[in-house]
């Protein structure tokens, strides 16, 4: 018999509602809340423990919460790890994603969670872990638990996992070949698809092409000499202690740092790169190589443009998903608007 462990939040862990959202992580032997239904739905896996943590606590003390949960698991023997289902609950979804990712990386054990497609946790974690397509609310608990049990059982036993559309999880961005069942020759598929297209009937391409998301080029700044210019980089230049804990790859966070006190250049030693996608030596020796504050200040003095915005913005652009990048861009743009910035220099590495 294989063994599994389930992670749930304070609400499903029967600790309490929003007033208990700061509840610190605990591990309980046996079954709490949805663990009972999950255990029943599993044939060859038994749930041995339930971990419970408040959504706020996980959201505001993520590293500490994950550290403690990792500690709980050090002496446990388990073949599969479950979290949720999280339905549409955003904080809960992100918590399930964070816990699953940590367990998968540290314990090399397969993980399964479930979320609704509108849960922000889906886009944050779908590339890394199996997230089943779940219902909107706890009314779908039984169905979602059953799906988690089915996929989890296969994973625990090391059985092959089918394609996303067949198994019901969010695609992880991996495309692989598979023999069709039934084995329909491509000649028939291509002619059938053409007939549908000719007859204006719906058809499904086997190689869906993502819609290009092109941003039109902004009109030129009319009078650069009066313009406030801001600098945004995905090159990972941050204050040396990385105060916002921006990830070195697959970033989901960005930082905003005041540079008004630096009149000539960004001081080496005070700033560094945390970007894991390129050799940091040159950037750390002189961070102006990535964020050319020295050149920008020179232009500012020459009057080429009016003023450099007091803050620069930074994140890490390696492995970062398009969805996350777009969200961070929108958030940064909001700040730039509020700061009356006229134009932005956006720099990759």
């Amino acid at each position: 018999m294989k063994k599994g462990i389930l992670y749930i939040n304070q609400f499903f862990g029967q600790i309490g509602g929003e007033e208990q959202a700061d509840f610190e992580p605990v591990i309980r032997e046996g079954l709490v809340g949805p663990a009972t239904a999950l255990d029943e739905a599993l044939d060859d896996v038994t749930i041995t423990h339930t971990i419970i943590c408040g959504d706020n606590y996980m959201g505001s003390h993520t590293e500490e919460a994950l550290r403690r949960i990792s500690g709980f698991l050090q002496d446990k023997d388990f073949d599969i790890f479950f979290a949720g289902p999280a339905f549409r609950a955003g904080r809960y979804g992100i918590a399930c994603g964070n816990v699953c990712q940590m367990v998968q990386e540290q314990f090399k054990v397969p993980v399964v969670t479930s979320m609704n497609d509108e849960n922000p946790g889906v886009e944050m974690f779908r590339q890394k872990i199996y997230i089943l397509k779940g219902g909107k609310s706890a009314a779908d608990m039984r169905k979602d638990i059953k799906a988690m049990a089915q996929l989890g059982q296969k994973l625990a036993k090391g059985e092959p996992i089918g394609a996303a559309q067949d198994e019901g999880y969010f695609g992880r961005g991996e495309r692989h070949q598979t023999v069709m069942d039934p084995p329909i020759p491509a000649a028939d598929r291509v002619v059938d698809m053409l007939l549908k297209k000719l007859n204006n009937q719906p058809f499904q391409s086997e190689l869906p092409i993502p819609k290009p998301d092109r941003v039109p080029i902004a009109p030129a700044v009319k009078d650069l000499s009066k313009a406030t210019i801001a600098f945004v980089t995905s090159g990972g230049i941050v204050p040396k202690d990385n105060p916002d804990r921006i990830q070195s790859a697959s970033a989901t966070k960005w930082g905003r740092y005041n540079i008004s006190q630096y009149k000539d250049r960004l001081p080496a030693g005070e700033y560094k790169t945390i970007h894991a996608g390129y050799d940091p030596a040159a950037a750390n020796e002189d961070p102006n190589r990535i964020f050319p504050l020295d050149a920008l200040r020179a232009y500012e003095r020459e009057g080429k443009f009016g003023k450099l915005h007091d803050y620069y913005y930074a994140t890490v652009g390696t492995g970062t998903t398009q969805g996350e990048a777009a969200r961070m861009g929108r958030e940064i743009a909001q700040h730039l608007h509020e700061g009356n910035v006229d134009a932005v220099i956006l720099v990759s590495t």
């Binding site: 996992i161 495309r175 329909i184 028939d188």
Partner: peptide, 14 residues
């Protein structure tokens, strides 16, 4: 990959 049309393979997202 039998692009002439024999192929019973396809590619799916996982």
């Amino acid at each position: 990959d039998m692009i002439c049309g024999f192929s019973t393979k396809t590619v799916k997202e996982y």
